[in-house]
Simulated assay, not measured.
Amino acid sequence: MKRTNISLSCLAVIFLLSSCYTSKISHGNLTVDSPTVKVNSVKNHSLIEGLIPLNKGYEAKNFVGDKTNYMTKSQITFVDGLLRFITLGIYTPSTTSFHVHENESLAK
């Protein structure tokens, strides 16, 4: 019984300490509340709470083409937070996704 309580306590701590961080940045005339469509995403890998990036730099035009109105959404998902927690902040993944207005497509 005591072992079950300790396991549940550890599980509760993991869920409470892992939060999902999200940041949206709009470029051009697009607002963060505009209806958008996700066109691509990239996984960011870094060390020591993001101080040492392991990915090479990338440009948004590689993901959204020649669009000037787009939105980038950077987030730490639950899985990213769990990996961060397990490695004590040594490995810190995050995800960046690229969105364009729903009336536009990459083919235009």
Rank of each mutant, 00 (worst) to 15 (best):
T77A: 09
S9Y: 12
V37Y: 03
S34M: 09
K38E: 13
H45Q: 11
P53T: 02
H45I: 09
V64M: 10
L106T: 03
I14Q: 02
L51N: 12
S105C: 06
T36E: 01
N69E: 08
L54M: 07
T22D: 03
L11K: 00
H99E: 12
I52F: 13
Y91C: 05
L82G: 02
E59M: 00
I52G: 02
P35H: 10
T95D: 07
D80K: 04
T95E: 04
C10N: 08
L30A: 08
S9G: 10
V39L: 03
E102F: 13
E102Y: 12
A12I: 06
F15S: 13
V64T: 02
E59S: 13
V100I: 15
N69M: 04
T4Y: 14
L17A: 09
L82Y: 13
G89H: 03
R3V: 11
K67M: 10
K56E: 14
G57A: 13
N40G: 10
I14R: 02
P93R: 05
G28H: 07
K24V: 03
L47K: 05
K2M: 03
V37E: 07
H101M: 09
K108H: 09
F15G: 04
S26V: 08
F15R: 01
R84Q: 07
I76A: 13
Y70G: 06
N40K: 12
V100P: 04
F85P: 08
L8E: 10
C10V: 10
L54N: 05
T31S: 14
P93F: 00
Y70T: 03
L47I: 12
K38A: 11
C10K: 11
T22K: 10
L51F: 13
P35K: 08
P35I: 01
S74G: 15
K43L: 02
N55M: 06
L54I: 02
Y58V: 11
Q75R: 14
L16F: 11
P35D: 11
K38S: 11
G89E: 02
E49G: 02
F63C: 01
L88D: 02
